[in-house]
């Protein structure tokens, strides 16, 4: 998948969790939790949504690597995301 496609998938996963959020203004290098009012359960649902969309199983120890849009794209590219 291209970075562009991964970017779209991450946004879609965020939308699953926070459907009312305006993602057009999301800053790619700033933590989601500071921008979207996500709590730990929302974050877990986000990880589940990534898993369902891209087949990537993220261990809990890697959660810290999924804090921003940019970081997610990088992580997912490294871990063989597939649609």
């Amino acid at each position: 998948m291209t970075s562009q496609e991964l970017d779209q998938s991450v946004r879609a996963a965020l939308s699953d969790v926070a459907p009312e959020a305006d993602l057009s203004t999301l800053k790619a290098s700033v933590a989601f939790r500071d921008q979207l009012d996500l709590d730990s359960m929302d974050f877990l649902r986000f990880v589940v949504a990534l898993n369902q969309r891209l087949g990537v199983e993220v261990p809990e120890s890697d959660y810290a690597r999924l804090t921003t849009l940019d970081a997610c794209v990088t992580y997912l590219a490294d871990h063989g995301a597939h649609p």
């Binding site: 877990l44 589940v48 261990p59």
Partner: peptide
């Protein structure tokens, strides 16, 4: 919780709550 979550698929993970 950490021990549990290592064993669990992402859909079954536990939160402290």
């Amino acid at each position: 919780l950490e021990q549990q979550n290592v064993k669990r698929p992402v859909t079954d993970r536990l939160l402290p709550v």
